[in-house]
Amino acid sequence: MVKAILYKEWIKTRRSVWLAAAVMAGCTAYAFVESGQEFRLSGAVQVWYGAIVKDAPLLPAVMQWVPAFVGVLLSLSQFVPEMTDRRLKLTLHLPAGEDALLASLLAYGAVVLVLLYALTCAVLAVGFSAIYPPEIVGNMVLDSLPWFLAGICAYLLTAWICMEPVWRFRIAYGLVGACLCAFFFVDGPAGACLPAIPYLTLFTLLCFFFPFHSAGRFKEGAR
């Protein structure tokens, strides 16, 4: 069952997955180009001073939104076709447990995102470790962790919104989702987010169950 669902989801979303990979790769390249430019214009001493003493971020500000954008993109490409003409009925009619089917759909998206984010994070860490000390690179990875968690959270919340059958509820869920995602983007000095990461991870795991609520309403025929 899982293999068949993965096959279906891959056929459905492969263009979006390649697009998401291209966006992540483009942003990673942009981060390196911008960092290199800063070294050339300001000099290594000034950049190091900024990074160590002033907590200047290594990554461009736009990077914080990219994982969430990619999460929403993947979720839309996966669940809008399911809800068009209420095709989710076809999926739920398959001879397998409905919860297991839905969990497989969500697990596919979450795994794709984790792979994309992990690869991006690894490339950034390896690249920056050539010019910064490990402590600063470690802080960069820690500080960017909430953004990647926000990406997975945005993916799950978008699935929750897409599968909701009633438009006014979708709008309400959208507002709730935006507020919840805001917790992942709280500013602070380097490493300040560390204590919050377990809670944000727990919350992201909790979001995995939200789409089941919408699917239940879809099954009941909510209007």
């Binding site: 056929i11 459905k12 076709p81 003409d85 209420r86 095709r87 001879p95």
Partner: peptide, 16 residues
């Protein structure tokens, strides 16, 4: 469910 074949109105299928 495996014993029930369902055709939705408009011959809806996974068009991708």
């Amino acid at each position: 469910k495996a014993r029930v074949g369902l055709l939705l109105e408009g011959h809806i299928q996974h068009t991708y």
